[in-house]
Design a protein around this nucleic acid. Structure first.
Lengths: 236, 236
DNA sequence: CAGCCTAGGTGTACGATGTAAACCTGTCAA
DNA sequence: TTGACAGGTTTACATCGTACACCTAGGCTG
């Protein structure tokens, strides 16, 4: 496979396709990212893209990965709260640079490893700060879209981690997940339903009410403390 | 206009079209709601829909309105916190019955009067409880998607309330808004930018950081208080 | 070296989508 | 009686994602 040859076309690859998608979406909006349009930018036939990308959703997933890759990596040695705060604000900066990303993330159904890795890393920061698995779980839910634009329901979405039928494959997958996303796994195993069985997905309703009450109580407290105009958050 | 005549077709209207859209989305998913498909359900030619609906986005807006109309109305006489809580949980119930609604609301760019009215009503509940305009504003941002699936950024989105060019129309619009959405107006007027000019849209970044710190502090407090497993929220 | 395999690119074609434009038709107001 | 017009139809177009068949040039194996 002649990589560069003479032509000005530097060999199509999945990475180049997704990067071109990001660039195109940045300047012309996400609607301009059609397979035909993107192929034209790459001076390639539309169907050529399908040799490197399963379908359009896969392409969009790759574009999201590029955005996530631009997040700051966690700085070690800082307090968990400062660390999480800096990380999330960095994610926000990246999302502001790519306004289309928020909607794409929300619409996408499958989570790529990059997405899972980011979530795992964030969960790990809470746990490294000493928060329990349950409290970390609550915090991830409460932060929700604040993390980057969609609530981290991959913990519960059955599509997020497709479990194979073959027990042998299950075993292999479990090992892989436990090595790669240990914190996510801890949260998943911590989940119990009414029957007490672990790994049964979290109780969305009580998660929702937990954060709702947390917020309402917080504003009640601010109100009672006489908070009335623009001030910094009470840090007591 | 023979309304019923002999045919079994009870006259097409915007309301019937949107209601049929809701029913269709409920049983076959939002992707099944195409103009052609919907028209077929109504035993009508696809283009007939356009006599009652501007375009597809308008149709989806009408569908959302139907969902919102199914929310519980606020019960008078209860504490603001209980009232808001009940209202939001009711909204959640409605959204769970129409799983497609969340994505549609997130994707829609224009806010219908029904949407604005709901937001205004909710803001009014905070203010009736004695919260200041600013604090209400923060609370609406913090609750964000929890209200129904999208953060209430209609306060800031310039597209949300298109300001006409003609000064006379501006005047009329201002009067109309002040009568119809008084609480939203109060929040909008409360916004000041760096130059101190009111009505200039809120500072998204500081809103974001406000809620972020609120949540991080809340979890820090829970952590420090020894919260480690499933308990009810500390209500102190 | 011959030959085949395959990764990677092309062209064509299909069904679906939203909707613009022109047209038809029955009902009510003047 | 005569429009006007609300409401429904037909046709047509551009665009979309992508299935399918095809071509072609290296690199590997015999």
């Amino acid at each position: 496979m002649a990589e560069n040859a003479t032509s000005a076309r530097p060999a199509l690859t999945r990475g180049r396709a997704c990067a071109a998608g990001v660039a195109l979406a940045d300047v012309e909006g996400i609607d301009a990212v059609s397979m035909r349009n993107l192929a034209a930018r790459l001076e390639v036939s539309p169907m050529a893209l399908y040799k490197h990308v399963r379908d359009k959703e896969d392409l969009l997933g790759g574009m999201i990965d590029i955005v996530i890759a631009s997040y700051d990596t966690p700085r070690p040695g800082v307090d968990w709260k400062q660390g999480v705060r800096a990380r999330i604000l960095s994610a926000r900066r990246a999302l502001l640079q790519h306004p289309w990303a928020r909607r794409v993330i929300e619409a996408s159904t499958t989570r790529t490893p990059t997405v899972l890795a980011y979530m795992d890393s964030l969960a790990g920061m809470f746990m490294a700060g000493g928060l329990s698995v349950d409290l970390t779980h609550h915090a991830m839910h409460a932060l929700g879209h604040r993390i980057w634009g969609f609530s981290p329901e991959a913990f519960d979405d059955p599509d997020a981690l497709a479990v194979p039928d073959d027990p042998a494959e299950q075993e292999a997958m479990l090992r892989h997940v436990s090595e790669t996303y240990p914190h996510i796994l801890a949260i998943a195993l911590g989940n119990t339903d009414a029957s007490g069985a672990p790994g049964s997905g979290c109780d969305e309703q009580s998660e929702f009410e937990f954060t709702l009450d947390l917020l309402l109580d917080a504003f009640d407290r601010l109100h009672a403390a006489g908070w009335s105009s623009r001030q910094t958050v009470l840090r007591s």
